[in-house]
């Protein structure tokens, strides 16, 4: 569904990504892993069009979207869920969600999707008239994911959905991402929480210093000694069980 070919990008003269190749197949969950300052968010911005490419191409469903503006890419169904801190705090929960459906013209479908989001995240229904600035961290994360879903995406890109959240909340969010994927939305999730992300995803890319350092099936990566040493410690069995039940 998404193909990233030899992408170089950065800010001004500063090049951060140096030749990224990536492939996200339709219907799957792919994760992009890496620590702070490795280029994860830069790659997301390059894919969604917030920063221009210096070199290389991005294809979405076979269409070269390298020169499209962000809102045009979004209209193709390539939707980026922003980091949780980037909800609109001065708007109510429902206004945020309606804004997610900004490009849609089908009222009935939008209404149905709003209901669907409220079913995914019942707490948002309770808080729908509240300003989103008053929500807790986990609730805001649910809100930005819900806002992404309102756009009726073909593919959803999530930017660190586990950031700054309690483990129990992370589990809930990830279980919901799993449900969203099952409903037919392709997912690319950028994470620092390597363990959770590899349990959730089928395929993983590890980025360091602007290049893909390692890639492979999630099951292989999780048992890979190099990954284990640098990112993981301890058993994954418990988390796995909790996530899948």
């Amino acid at each position: 569904m998404l193909e990233v070919k030899d992408v170089h990008a950065g800010y001004g003269n500063l090049k951060i990504l140096r030749g990224i190749n990536m492939n996200v197949p339709t219907g799957g969950i792919v994760t992009l892993l890496g620590g702070n300052g490795t280029g994860k968010s830069t790659l997301l911005k390059a894919i969604s069009g917030l920063i221009p490419l210096m070199q290389g191409d991005v294809f979405f469903n076979g269409v070269n979207i390298s020169n499209m503006k962000p809102h045009q890419r979004m209209r193709l169904g390539l939707v980026q869920v922003t980091q949780a801190k980037e909800a609109y705090p001065a708007m109510t929960v429902e206004e945020n969600l309606v804004l997610g459906a900004y490009t849609r013209r089908d009222r009935e479908g939008t209404k149905a999707d709003l209901e669907k989001v409220y079913e995914f995240f019942p707490v948002l229904r309770e808080r729908r008239k509240q300003l989103s600035g008053t929500l807790s961290g986990g609730e805001v994360q649910m809100l930005v994911i819900g806002r992404g879903l309102m756009a009726a995406p073909k593919m959803l890109m999530l930017d660190e959905p586990s950031a700054a959240l309690a483990p129990k909340v992370v589990l809930e969010i990830f279980a919901n991402i799993n449900r969203i994927a099952k409903s037919g939305v392709t997912i690319l999730v950028v994470e620092q929480n390597v363990r959770m992300a590899l349990i959730l995803a089928q395929y993983g890319y590890i980025i360091r210093d602007g290049v893909i350092m390692m890639q492979g099936e999630a099951d292989n990566l999780i048992s890979d000694p190099a990954v284990k040493d640098s990112f993981l410690g301890g058993s994954v069995a418990d988390t796995s069980k909790a996530l899948r039940n």
């Binding site: 969604s48 069009g49 917030l50 503006k69 962000p70 809102h71 979004m74 209209r75 939707v79 980026q80 922003t82 980037e86 609109y88 804004l99 997610g100 900004y102 490009t103 806002r147 756009a151």
Partner: peptide
């Protein structure tokens, strides 16, 4: 930026 990502 976020407005852009919402398709505005």
């Amino acid at each position: 930026d976020i407005a852009y990502l919402m398709g505005v």
